[in-house]
């Protein structure tokens, strides 16, 4: 392990809680301007401003799961119908060809949707890290499912800690915790 990696691995948790969306967005921008990365934003709802600020318009890779699922599904539908019919070609209901694409298109369509949805679910689970029961406790803040926002660093390096705390407080965080200690709090916020 390199020295830099060792420092990150042994870093300190620091989290700022915000009561206002504009303050949170200012905090994200200031952190990015300061070249500090590795933070997670906590939010009670999906706000496009937050996702835009963090991911800068990059689409989620879940879409590739959907595409692969759809392609897998249509091929599964085609193979399932064609191969099963070919296994005993003597049975020819309705006088149709053994491999009759128009009626099989219905099964292929349904399989496309089914596999597309199941692969999307798998992609969601993988990329979201669900089930997320082992998430760091600084990310588990019940206030966030209510009406607060947050910026959390799981492992901030020692040299960044002071800068991060300053940015969080300057941009309107109502509470800052470092490790398990509250180092800054706005009363009655």
């Amino acid at each position: 392990m390199s020295a830099a990696h060792a420092e990150v691995a042994s870093g300190t948790r620091i989290k700022g809680i915000y009561a206002h969306l504009d303050c949170l967005l200012a905090g994200i921008e200031k952190l990015k301007e300061a070249g500090i990365s590795g933070f997670q934003v906590l939010s009670p709802l999906p706000r496009h401003e937050i996702l835009e600020a963090v991911y800068e318009g990059r689409p989620s890779p879940v879409r590739w799961w959907t595409l692969v699922g759809g392609i897998t599904g249509i091929n599964t539908g085609l193979l399932l119908t064609s191969l099963t019919a070919s296994q005993w070609p003597m049975i020819n209901p309705g006088g149709k060809p053994v491999v009759a694409l128009p009626p099989y298109a219905v099964i292929m369509f349904e399989c496309t949707i089914l596999f597309g949805a199941l692969f999307t679910l798998a992609g969601l689970i993988v990329h979201c890290g669900l089930p997320g029961f082992g998430l760091d406790k600084s990310l588990q803040d019940p206030r966030v499912s209510d009406d607060k926002f947050g910026i959390a660093f799981l492992r901030a390096s020692a040299k960044d800690l002071e800068r991060i705390a300053a940015i969080l407080s300057d941009t309107g965080a109502i509470e800052i915790t470092r490790g398990d200690d509250t180092i800054y709090e706005v009363p009655n916020a």
């Binding site: 997670q40 989620s60 879940v62 949707i113 969601l124 966030v144």
Partner: peptide, 24 residues
């Protein structure tokens, strides 16, 4: 499922939700 409203969760959730709707 351990949902805590992180940006990572919302980001992929919103991506996936649109696809679920598009498939449904």
């Amino acid at each position: 499922l351990g949902w805590h409203g992180t940006d990572r969760q919302w980001y992929h959730y919103m991506g996936a939700y649109g696809f679920f709707a598009a498939l449904a």
